[in-house]
Amino acid sequence: MWAYLSSPRFLRSILPAASLAVLLAAIFYIQPRTMSYFGLKLMLQYAVPIALATIAQMHIITVNDLDLSIGPFVGLTACIGATLLVSTPLLGLLALAACIGVYAGLGALVYWRNLPSIVVTLGMSFVWMGLSVLILPTPGGKAPVWIKAIMGYEFPFIPLPIIAATTIALVVHQGLMHSSYGAVLRGAGGNPKAIGRAGWSLLKSKMLMYALGGFFGVLSGLSLIGLTSAADAHIADRYTLYSIAGVILGGGEFVGGRVSPIGAVLGALTLTLTGSFLIFMKISPDWQIGAQGGILIIVLALRALIKRKEAMS
């Protein structure tokens, strides 16, 4: 029993949940009133869009790439959601579908020309930002009523963000970790040569993973305006960093298709809670990103320790 509990494999898998538990315990200790339906709901409000953006990033990371444009992309989908989707719903849906199509195209381009995804997505971040500014030059717009209704829905006993985060984690976990094609997709990141030799199309898997990234990016943008009611081109600029940090906190590796959807969602929750934690600690919000960076480094250090243990045994 103890041998299992102290095995590197177990430690590694428990790390994301443990980081979240420690942070949550600290918050409950400092401010016991947060240990309630409304306390949790308030603190975790923005966990849904952040978790969705993190899941989007995770899909790209699975195939050994990195998306530095996810923040502006979420911003663009938020702008589309708050304008076109309200005025002409059909056109809005088409625009969102086209966004996902562009993502699939990016996957194809990166694969076809063997391009560094960092440069391509950095370029795209300008394109998304430009489109947002064209669609919504000044902050404003109005979120569709149905999205606001969904995001404002109150479940009995358990707040919506927790239910939503659990659902997202389980659905993606099922699809990516427990389906046979999911294994192929992860293999496309882990050992592309082997997957290619086995007759699977690497182009198709790259395109699909990018498209899924785009899809979850769209969901992130829509859920975001459900909370804020209005949009702005810069509404989600920080999401690029959040999403990468969330995947790492969740135990995702940068190469080799080693990712964890459940971990990624836990990582996103941890990041969301850092803000509240700092407020309760009466630390200036200036240090918020610093604290997030600090948590990131601590978790990475713990993981390095576990790895060292793994190498020794």
Binding site: R113, P116, G130, S132, V133
Partner: peptide, 25 residues
């Protein structure tokens, strides 16, 4: 060109250049 168009063009040109240069094995 408006601010939006400027951003879009900048992004597209960077992608075009990297695509033309191509990645290497």
């Amino acid at each position: 060109a408006s601010g939006g168009v400027r951003l879009i063009m900048t992004g597209l040109i960077i992608i075009a250049v990297i695509t033309a240069a191509g990645g290497e094995k």
